[in-house]
Design a protein around this nucleic acid. Structure first.
Lengths: 266, 266
DNA sequence: TACACACGTCTCTTGTAAGAGACAATCGCT
DNA sequence: AGCGATTGTCTCTTACAAGAGACGTGTGTA
């Protein structure tokens, strides 16, 4: 994610919605796209660049940005040309957290878990059909294994992904996974059938462990958090070095599953 | 804030914007109002109630809410009729926090400060001309003195308010304070001149202490956090029982000011 | 049973917001 | 200085979103 030749980090129109060509776009949608775009790029963006990145007319973009800045949803970043998320969004976000028991307690649980084990710990959820790291706490290893909050990762790349889909039928699972999602960062391909098998196994065992999927150096232990019997609302997971001993892995898994079960009571 | 006869918690049209009567309202504005309304009420709201509370036509409200729910900015709350903030807002909010050094470090500082002193501690900022509690950490007193994050309070009611306005000229200060803001919850009235005097004093001393303003039982100690020399970006404050001894108050103030100064370096 | 009031969905009209594009001012480069 | 690219503002047109209102259904209560 270095600065470079205007990489968009954006699916563009290709995502599936057909656009009747020379048609107008609702302001609200433009705004939603802007927010997504900022989220995807995780940095302040110039207004011109924003317009370009979203295939939006410049004039419209200027207008909308001005309105959003006035409303406090966006803020002009230091140098005065770029925009990024604003304080209001932070306040709304905190309000969401306060109103959401699972999230609030889950965050705490993740924090204490990573403090007690020293390993990186995360709380994950499905967000509009994508795997999302909702909260993470770094652990204290010299090489911190970190992935930013809010990051969205293809479901098949993760242990949590297997748990989050537990209980869904084959059709639904297929609907949530694209062809691309099945290709790992290193190029290897996961077979859809294997993935679905894994989901079934994860469901009955009540946990999931994957090794060297997103990268070659880490192992991922995940346990489900239920919002209702059978309904996986979230997962807690630990990201540990891939050479962690069987024994320690087992211990960690036990603690993890206890904590996740505790969260489930709700 | 009990459930009761549809209290709006909303200024209505009266806020100052003149509406040309039978005119149409932009969708985006309606959305911004909805978010503010939810924030003001701090709870899930029924769609009908939302429409009523905002003087918005029901049909429009239904449409917009549906779009926002699809986008993840709002979520249908448990019982299936009410809406509240959605996960996306949380994610955007966290992204804001990550991108904002002062906020990130300020939160930490507040947390440790309240852990070390045992008192309630807060980080406050100006948000669209209002005093806002951006982060607070409860302390460990039996009667927790708590005020929710995101709460907006008239500037003259608080010690922080006096610091946040330090450096502004009289005209600007007057512009930020309404007649109502000068009336305390218990009915007492603050003179504008006294308030402005306080601001001046706070500016030179570099801290501010108020007693029994918002309520009769607490004292509020505040210290400024600077983003640039002379520019107060935020305040850190401690809320303590009003009968806290001179001596302890002094000690707390010293610690508080040190911490706030540390934050200022930025 | 009948009444009053909510909810959620639809249809149709028209006021207006999205967009195209022109403009001057800056910036960075050679 | 001369050139191209970018920035921010403005004007004008028309495609379409906001809104009015009707409809069917569900729910509480008198």
């Amino acid at each position: 994610m270095q600065d470079g030749e205007t990489q968009t980090g954006w699916p563009g129109e290709g995502a599936g919605e057909e656009r009747p060509a020379g048609s107008r776009e609702k302001g609200l949608n433009r705004v939603l796209n802007m927010l997504e775009f900022l989220h995807a790029n995780q940095r302040a963006i110039g207004i011109g660049e924003l317009a370009k990145g979203l295939n939006a007319p410049r004039s419209t973009t200027y207008t909308l940005v001005r309105e959003l800045v006035e409303a406090g949803l966006l803020e002009m970043a230091g140098d005065g040309n770029r925009v990024y998320f604003g304080k209001k969004l932070y306040l709304y976000g905190m309000a969401y957290m306060r109103g959401n028991d699972l999230l609030r307690r889950g965050r705490q649980e993740v924090d204490t878990l990573s403090r007690e084990t020293g390993e990186t710990s995360e709380l994950c959820m499905l967000q509009s059909g994508r795997y999302t790291i909702v909260h993470s706490s770094p652990g204290n290893r010299p090489f911190r294994i970190s992935s930013a909050t809010g990051l969205q990762i293809p479901l098949p790349w993760t242990a949590s992904g297997r748990l989050l889909l537990a209980g869904l039928d084959r059709g639904r699972i297929e609907a949530m996974v694209t062809e691309d999602d099945l290709v790992l960062p290193d190029g290897r391909k996961i077979e859809l059938d294997d993935f679905i098998d894994d989901i079934g196994k994860a469901r009955v065992t009540g946990y999931c462990v994957t090794s060297g999927l997103v990268d070659a150096y880490t192992k991922c232990l995940a346990a489900p958090v239920f919002s209702a019997p059978g309904k996986v609302e979230a997962t807690m997971c630990l990201v540990v070095p891939i050479d962690t001993s069987e024994e320690r892995t087992g211990e960690l898994l036990t603690v993890l599953r206890e904590r996740a079960a505790l969260l489930s009571i709700s």
